[in-house]
Write a protein that binds this DNA or RNA. Sequence first.
DNA 1: GTTTTGTTTGAAATTATAAAAAACACTTGA
DNA 2: TCAAGTGTTTTTTATAATTTCAAACAAAAC
Lengths: 300, 300
Amino acid sequence: MARSDTRYREAFNRLLDYCGALPVGAALPAETALSDAAGVSRTVIRRCLARLQELGLISWDGREKHLLRAPAPADRIALPEHGGSSEDLEKRFLSWILRFDVPANTPLSVAELSRSFDVPQHELKEFLAGLSRFGLVGRRKQGGWMLRGFTREFAIELSDFRSVLELNAVAHAAEAPIDHPIWDQLDALRTRHLALKQRIDTDYHEFSKLDESFHMAINGVVSNRFVAEFQKVISLIFHYHYMWDKTLEKTRNAAAIEEHLAIIDALEARDGNAAVEAARRHLKTSKSTLLSSLRHHDLG
Amino acid sequence: MARSDTRYREAFNRLLDYCGALPVGAALPAETALSDAAGVSRTVIRRCLARLQELGLISWDGREKHLLRAPAPADRIALPEHGGSSEDLEKRFLSWILRFDVPANTPLSVAELSRSFDVPQHELKEFLAGLSRFGLVGRRKQGGWMLRGFTREFAIELSDFRSVLELNAVAHAAEAPIDHPIWDQLDALRTRHLALKQRIDTDYHEFSKLDESFHMAINGVVSNRFVAEFQKVISLIFHYHYMWDKTLEKTRNAAAIEEHLAIIDALEARDGNAAVEAARRHLKTSKSTLLSSLRHHDLG
DNA sequence: GTTTTGTTTGAAATTATAAAAAACACTTGA
DNA sequence: TCAAGTGTTTTTTATAATTTCAAACAAAAC
């Protein structure tokens, strides 16, 4: 019942490496210097030094610290291996919801999620608290959390919000200076779109990735932390929903390619109004696709 | 080290009330029914029943539960009083930051905040995790949290984001059907604006409230959970910043009244484009006011 | 007088645990 | 016999205890 001492263990091994680069008999620098170098507090450094002394690696008396022998591999302490599991928790969580089509109003068990995602409970709670800001999850009166989920309402509001952000981005893109990276990106995107259009009959499933690239490029023009935060969630949701709804996928993607190209054309012509109009059409299609994919799911 | 038994205590008192409404000798309903009625689990109900039995209030054997005497005030158990302190944590936290002008990159001590806001630590942590979604706070590598704060960058991005949302709201308002409540609201707002304009020389400080009402009405047209969530934060921030910057407050507010009236005029004329343009002008003023208020603060 | 170490204090992360919820397995009486 | 209720067990949640760590402070050494 306490916090892990991973910090100490890692620092110790790093210190061992540091000693390895020193000749036997050399003096070690001050504790403050060591703590700065290792990026930990002096408390940890002193714990490490104590262990080094115990192992007979150094002599330590006051500010006299000398290396007695070269460190051996056996001196290292094992790290409680933990594959940075809580790294992309967000991605994994959303994937889980969307992939397994977890229905709205499902109670979420922190204990269970904690196990299946291999993440400490308190981390999960903080994560859920963050998601609750997006209205995706909420607290229950009896305690615990529940998935508010992808109701029709949610999808509509999400789509609308996305539209607002993206139309703004398109308008900004149209005004971007000539040396802005967006123009090169658009050029490359046009090529990719045209290429895929040629082989749409066979490779239509490749569109999903292209779609993501396209929207990311457009939204990248607006450098705004709030927009960026939302974009992450939005793109994931749309991405997965597209993966589901296999009805008419080929037709749908072919149409979307045309819509994208229309936006690119208008942008490259620096015709802001036309670009925004084209984007509006595309986002409208996108929204109805999302909604119909939900409908199919509800029925299935 | 355990969770509090407030739930049990509250349930017990509620059960006491329930018994008070019953004649002596009456039978009590099934545990399941009681738990449903009280909104707690059967476990809690059984604990309550056990206590009722101990106090000689009821006889309890299997499914035979009978009221033996009317409950007295002394039978109640005390609640560990806690003035719903964690209610408006968000408001209080933002107020604290803005009022005391907590600088950017200040380390936030959860322990300290927990004490000063009188809120359990874990609640604060969840709260901060939520705020981190807005980029207002972030984690430190050494552990703990820190206030990213109201840097110039933050203010700019916030203003821009606000503009995007609000311009969208204005555009929607212009399209609102004739029976939409916004029209009555705008009418009332126009009257209030004109009234304040008359006595601006003396009552100019009243504008802040009027400003909030105005923007809330406009944004209310768009019913979107994401917009609403942001609106809360945005309005608070702008509200407090206006309170600070006393330079030219009268002139500033007088000008803002005109800008608001221009928006109202255009909306009531159902001229969407004019309304959006008027709003754009107003938001631009608003942004530069916010930025200059930051500048003053930096220098002070 | 500045740098370094020894010591104390307070906070953060993590776990242990009581309270509550939910699931399960029996009774009981129509 | 079977639905509704109770007794019991298992699981989960909320919270505080505990350990590790960070940082402030004070004494000492160069």
